[in-house]
Design a binder for these strands. Structure first.
Lengths: 203, 203
DNA sequence: TCGAAGTGTTAAATATCATAAACGAGTAAA
DNA sequence: TTTACTCGTTTATGATATTTAACACTTCGA
């Protein structure tokens, strides 16, 4: 993970300045990476143990490499697939928030109060959540990359993560990878209050 | 039955020929992911806009899909490439924590209870903090880069961030860049309880 | 018991990728 | 200039991925 600052430029370039949809320019990204490391196509090819032509073709998006191929190529840099497809984040300004300034997100049986307004580009989201008795998030929630954790303040709170399920009481907590499908339910008689944190923001 | 040895060779070839790699099982992962979402191969294929055969073949590691193909397949779940490849280094074990299992960090007037034990390599730290009346963190705390946020559950809590100072009550919150020097104080008569989250972990 | 619809898997045909080798251009030293 | 390297690109061919269409099996009703 090179922290050059040049990397930042590249990432910006790759992500198309915010307009880009899901399809980033794989070729452009590889080329930027290679140039950042001062490698010629042939040199990278040699290190990666592949032909030089494939690097040229990939960089021009004239071919869509197999994952095995891309992994080999990245191995010559070296860089992991994980890092290659990773994104980045940025800083912020506001510090304090009055209780009634927390932006309301939910509305019905489940209410979220979020610290901060626009969290795009921020690395942390913290929520104060309230679940009325019987409230249920449903089971098809799959948030994006990141991790999620929370502490129960009040009530009986059922948390399901992948295959695991548990009912948590005040003071109990959870911590899991947000990519695993998860579900929250209030299984008690009283309102559930819980404080959760995610990284990065998923709303 | 038919050809187990041949299949094995193919898999080895796919994963990079001679070089020993961090061989994550791409097929297995896709299969797990698909099953977690209760999708059949054909259903996923339909959503992704690809043939059902390719899903079967990928899951058996009988083929190394192109990046474009894998992206299309993941699009049917949906899941990003980033998330997909980030999964291989993130097999979290512990998910739930009983109130008395939270690892105690402080001890005196200030007590931290942390969710999870060893947070190295994780992206999120969540703490339940208690401050006795008069408790003060002192003003020279400068944590590493990252962001920090919290919500006050109980008590009157003075937060100082850089030049800014504010007394927060129940429900109030804060959010700042951890590189800015900051200080916490209990300025009320009762105990302060606050839930905070940091990224990345600073202990 | 039969068929219709579901599952995952497989075979042959086609589309695509990956390679080796050649190409044109640029640079530097002799 | 020539010679000998480098660079990124392109082409022909063999290898592999992907599709279409089938296979074998299970489940659910009629």
């Amino acid at each position: 993970m090179s922290n050059d600052g040049a990397t930042e430029k590249i990432v910006n370039k790759i992500n198309g300045g915010g307009v880009a949809e899901d399809d980033f320019d794989l070729g452009q990204r590889l080329r930027s990476l290679r140039e950042l490391h001062n490698l010629s196509q042939r040199e990278l090819a040699k290190r990666a143990g592949v032909s030089n032509a494939v690097i040229s073709l990939i960089e021009q998006n004239r071919t869509s490499p197999s994952v095995g191929m891309l992994k080999k190529v990245l191995g010559g840099i070296p860089m992991s697939m994980n890092d290659f497809f990773a994104l980045d984040v940025a800083p912020r300004a506001e510090v304090f928030f009055k209780a009634d300034e927390l932006t309301e997100i939910g509305g019905g049986k489940i209410s979220f109060r979020q610290v901060g307004r626009d969290l795009t580009g921020k690395a942390l989201q913290i929520l104060r959540e309230r679940y009325q008795p019987g409230a249920d998030t449903g089971d098809t929630m799959l948030r994006h990359e990141g991790e999620e954790s929370g502490i129960v303040i009040r009530g009986r709170f059922e948390v399901t993560v992948g295959e695991q399920r548990r009912v948590l009481g005040p003071g109990d907590a959870f911590y899991f990878d947000s990519r695993i499908p998860h579900r929250f339910r209030n299984v008690g008689e009283e309102e559930v209050e819980v404080v959760t944190a995610c990284t990065p923001p998923s709303f």
